[in-house]
């Protein structure tokens, strides 16, 4: 496949497990073994209690649309206006993503609508987590 025109992430030792996970179809968060705080983005310690005793938690992939904008300026990786979204994951953390399998309009993108993760192969060893409305045909 052709390589994505997106700006692609360069994993670091602290984030490699996340990007290995997306390639395997898993959305990997982290959870503190001491205080049970679930967090994102990745780091090898708990941002709530500073414990280094943390483990990977595979997320359900379910979330809701917390906020977004629809960018109207042209971007080489997108055809026409596209939404940049903030997704509230079921486990608590929030992440930026795109909403796929859905019109990129205010009417189609209703706040708090349920979403499910899907992974897009960028053609360069990186699979990006994206979200699609639950029940939408994909």
């Amino acid at each position: 496949m052709t390589e994505s025109l997106r700006t692609l992430p360069v994993p670091t030792p602290e984030t490699q497990h996340f990007w290995d996970g997306t390639r395997d179809g898993e959305l990997r968060l982290q959870q503190c073994s001491d205080c049970q705080h679930t967090y994102f983005p990745p780091r090898p310690f708990c941002p709530q209690c500073s414990s280094r005793d943390v483990r990977i938690l595979v997320a359900s992939g379910r979330g809701t649309l917390e906020s977004y904008v629809i960018n109207h300026r042209p971007h080489k990786a997108f055809d026409g206006p596209y939404a940049i979204a903030l997704v509230a994951l079921e486990e608590g953390p929030r992440m930026m993503s795109n909403i796929v399998g859905c019109e990129q309009t205010p009417e189609a993108l209703q706040l708090d609508m349920p979403l499910q993760v899907t992974f897009e192969d960028t053609g360069s060893d990186i699979h990006l987590p994206m979200f699609t409305p639950t029940g939408a045909s994909s």
Partner: peptide
């Protein structure tokens, strides 16, 4: 760069 920029 890893968790925001890829989404445009």
């Amino acid at each position: 760069g890893q968790f925001e920029m890829p989404y445009g």
